[in-house]
Design a protein around this nucleic acid. Sequence first.
DNA 1: GTGGTCTAGACCACT
DNA 2: GTGGTCTAGACCACG
Lengths: 121, 121, 121, 121
Amino acid sequence: MNFQNDRPIYLQIFDYLVLLIVTDKYKVGEKIPSVRELATFFKVNPNTMQKALSELEEEGLIYTERTNGKFVTNDGNIIKNYKEKIALDKTLEYLKSMKELGFPFEEVLEKVKNMGKDAKI
Amino acid sequence: MNFQNDRPIYLQIFDYLVLLIVTDKYKVGEKIPSVRELATFFKVNPNTMQKALSELEEEGLIYTERTNGKFVTNDGNIIKNYKEKIALDKTLEYLKSMKELGFPFEEVLEKVKNMGKDAKI
Amino acid sequence: MNFQNDRPIYLQIFDYLVLLIVTDKYKVGEKIPSVRELATFFKVNPNTMQKALSELEEEGLIYTERTNGKFVTNDGNIIKNYKEKIALDKTLEYLKSMKELGFPFEEVLEKVKNMGKDAKI
Amino acid sequence: MNFQNDRPIYLQIFDYLVLLIVTDKYKVGEKIPSVRELATFFKVNPNTMQKALSELEEEGLIYTERTNGKFVTNDGNIIKNYKEKIALDKTLEYLKSMKELGFPFEEVLEKVKNMGKDAKI
DNA sequence: GTGGTCTAGACCACT
DNA sequence: GTGGTCTAGACCACG
């Protein structure tokens, strides 16, 4: 895992784990590796790992069983909604910034289509 | 102007001034206000303002005439290219992150269309 | 039984059993279920169950007859006093924290009355 | 400041700062001491202090101005509501636990009155 | 000087 | 072995 310099590592790990969850790599209700294991895997300090996981828990995507481990939430809807929310946020932000730049919507749509066609993205 | 807390202020000002330039609010070759004036306007420290302007100058969007002030570049192409570059970057980044989330391109296109239709964005 | 995450499970079980005793669900002198049965019932590790019972015994609310089982104390006064002690502790703690928050006693009394009226609590 | 052993220090500091805010010791909009100063004052590690303050910020009771310091929220309503919320929570929890113990409401009221009379609490 | 982040490492209670 | 907490100390960007 390569971390960028302009964002906190714990947030980058957070984002990565979110991806694993919303794309079903970590299944609903599944136990996730221990804090220490994850810290080793990402080559970060356990505290940093802990912080990333705390954020996940705050979002309701995982929960903790004391002395037992951490688990993906059992509520599939939370995951589904979270995924949808991210998507809407990103789409909205994208369209907003394109509009600020002065592109009419048709042109934006054109760009999206072209870029989606050209490359496999 | 409301600044977010998770990004340097000078970058947020930079972005804002870029918008003014690429949307022709600051015309090609036009003189822009002095550092002091801008600092007052944005309610920031002159050092912060200076940093934002330095970034603009580095991108070639403005240039400095010593003792005379700062001006928007006279080369309209620089501005046009810069605008296009931002747009492509944003579009690429958007499509990439949507793909990471597991959305097929058709669904992304759908979301863009819907959101462009629904709201004035 | 739903356990909270911020307190030891054995303490939560302890509290629950205390309730059973002071509210006479477990009568004076009555035999209580075996550690194993209770552990199964609460879905916890027998060690955890044992710890909860040890605390009860320390408080004098139950006693152990070797090879025979555990029993609620025969001394009704112990139970009565314990109940009274808890009540006073809770009341004192409650009033203290309300005072710390800056509520005058009259207002506290008002809140108690209202909340006791409105809901069945 | 004497910390208890059965609760995280950062939460005890959190509670204490909440008291300072809801009782107007820290006024609306006022700058609070720097993380380092507070850490020194409470004799804890800056990280611990930071965690306590993060919780406060999450609750909306304080906000951060980057490189400038932390401030009590400017919205007096947030503070007022928070105070009221704590009071209701505490009252509800108190009445609930007294009911669980088997005390009829009249008796609870009596205890509250007596204890409020006897001592200055 | 400000807050934010991160590391290294330790200790603890609980199961 | 699990998560949670805490310390000591460092570095960084920002203003």
